[in-house]
């Protein structure tokens, strides 16, 4: 198992070193926020998730020990769980019978570029597990092994999720392009 690049920093955070806290926020906040924004398609909710993720980091830093997963993998898992809590809450609030494809009109108008908005809508339109896999491998640039560990699935299952996710995205984007 290779060395965890975050281990020493997390140990210092656990010991209450304010400089280490700043370094960890600078290193992880952009990744956590990007993950949450793409999972939820909502910048404000993603910011709430990022704050909650850091509260968990502060709480566990002093006792965090590397098991099978790296700190980054653990942080991604925590963030994804928080995103799932929000997605579940949304489903409970809206209706019991949610359509597979999200309503484009319900998504925030945070991205000025049309292409980006189309991709955002398409990502929200695919199954959450497929979305997770694509975000982790494509946007978060995790290796297949790291992404599979984060999703707690095999590498074969990850590849299957990625293939199906990308195929669904192509279909949605082609349809959206034809409509637009």
């Amino acid at each position: 198992m290779s060395a965890d690049p975050d281990e020493e920093l997390v140990r210092r955070v656990g010991a209450g070193d304010p400089a280490a806290v700043q370094s960890l926020v600078a290193r992880k906040l952009p990744r956590i926020l990007a993950l949450a924004v793409r999972m939820l398609g909502d910048a404000a909710e993603a910011e709430d998730v990022a704050q909650e993720a850091f509260v968990r980091i502060w709480r566990h830093a002093s006792s965090w020990r590397r098991g099978n997963a790296s700190f980054d993998t653990w942080v991604h898992r925590v963030t994804l769980n928080l995103c799932y809590d929000r997605l579940r809450r949304r489903r409970e609030w809206v209706t019991d019978d949610v359509p597979d494809v999200a309503d484009p009109a319900a998504l925030p108008d945070a991205h000025p570029r049309e292409d980006a908005q189309r991709v955002e809508r398409a990502l929200q339109g695919i199954a959450p597990r497929q979305r997770e896999a694509i975000i982790l491998v494509y946007y978060q640039e995790m290796s297949n092994i790291e992404a599979a560990a984060t999703l707690q699935i095999s590498v074969d299952a990850l590849e299957s999720l990625l293939s199906r996710g990308r195929r669904s995205l192509q279909v949605i984007l082609a349809r959206d392009g034809a409509d637009g």
Binding site: A34, R38, R118, V119, L173
Partner: peptide
């Protein structure tokens, strides 16, 4: 598809 995915950038915190 990669080119389309690349267009979806997320703003920095």
């Amino acid at each position: 598809l990669d080119a389309q995915l690349d267009s979806y950038a997320v703003e920095a915190p």
